[in-house]
Write a protein that binds this DNA or RNA. Structure first.
Lengths: 207, 207
DNA sequence: CCTCTAAACGGACAATCGTCCGCTTAGATT
DNA sequence: AATCTAAGCGGACGATTGTCCGTTTAGAGG
């Protein structure tokens, strides 16, 4: 119903144009790839002006986020449940392990989109470094897991926000696509290395 | 003498133009900042055409690399000696610690340049993901240190190349400038978090 | 000094992004 | 139904990057 309210406050033509844009983007992305498709081409193909396109989506990243919105929501719900399930998996580090594995799998499934989202947020000509609510949620979730792990003695005291940023950077679309496409590493190899590095690496041990 | 040979095989006007370009870039970067200076502006200010500029430097990143070439070489020599000094610092992990600290300090000292170098290598419109010989050297050096650490039992078996990429991503200008300028973390805090995470995190322990 | 050619030059041109602003129109109000 | 206004539209425009190619010139060889 929040969605309905959001849509109700838009004019009919605006709502229709938005759908046209999303449909055109989906079609073009599928047909020729995300990075081979320019914003102007999307506007033309959707039958709207550039101003209209940019009014709806500030950059290609926002467009991609809208296109995979459902997948992101599903991930957030499913993995959010997993990392909150202290009964099935008591160890916070084990739950972090799951989160990392799931995030890498998700990245693999929409790599060009995620790459575009990151490009828009980190490019030189960026206005805002905002990566969307999903990225923010990931960061918060990791920080919470780390805090839990520290609290129960599974991990030594650490700088949670920074370690979370490092985990996100390590599993970023940027680095991931470099390793997958340039270095030709398998997704299994990458996932294994990340999980071992962070989960074993962070684990507290008596010295 | 390699430099002399390289310069001798260039025509006089080419050599002069190259110097004009470097001087103009240095001046403009200092006066208005790296990212506020366009390539065309550099060409105009240097009194050459765009074609000439791009013939000498394929992008702003290459230009920046040329501008801080001496600093990079000095760093490479000095830190290269430190991480090879198995007498003063026998522990490979301790030497990795030094490398990480030094790299962060270097990044801090030329942040806008390094950011431009990275942007050119990782942007959406990139042709090549080549970050220059310095980045390659850092990666090799880290891989070597990790291998040494594994060999002497200081670190469990790991995926060296990937862990090296993660260390470089964690200390990348991109993430570093985000933490410094957007989150306003101090360089000390960032350096401490990175060093603790990787050096303590990688250390092998009896279980 | 003259010739010649490959290296180098320079700026027009094309692609892309993103903004601006005068015009249009949905839909609320009367 | 007529009016009105602000949300929305569209495409010209400016900025930036990077390429292409006809023209110029350094400097080697005769």
């Amino acid at each position: 119903m929040d969605v309905e309210q959001t849509q109700r406050r838009q004019r009919r033509d605006a709502r229709e144009n938005r759908q046209q844009i999303l449909a055109a983007a989906k079609r073009l992305f599928a047909g020729q790839g995300v990075d081979r498709t320019s914003m102007h081409e999307i506007a033309r193909s959707a039958g709207v002006g550039q101003g209209t396109l940019y009014r709806h989506f500030a950059d290609k990243g926002e467009l991609c986020r809208a296109l995979i919105k459902e997948d992101l929501a599903a991930f957030q719900e499913r993995v959010g449940a997993l990392v909150s399930d202290t009964v099935t998996t008591p160890s916070p580090l084990a739950r972090l392990d799951v989160l990392i594995a799931e995030k890498i799998e998700l990245t693999e499934s929409h790599l060009p989109m995620f790459a575009a989202i990151e490009d828009a947020a980190t490019g030189a000509r960026r206005k805002k470094g905002f990566r969307g609510p999903f990225h923010a949620w990931l960061h918060e979730t990791i920080v919470a897991l780390l805090a839990e792990a520290v609290a129960c003695g599974e991990v030594d005291t650490i700088d949670g926000p920074i370690v979370a940023d490092v985990i996100l950077a390590a599993t970023s679309p940027q680095l991931y696509s470099f390793e997958r496409q340039d270095l030709l590493y398998s997704s299994e190899r990458i996932a294994a290395a990340m999980r071992r590095l962070f989960v074993n690496g962070l684990r507290h041990v008596e010295r």
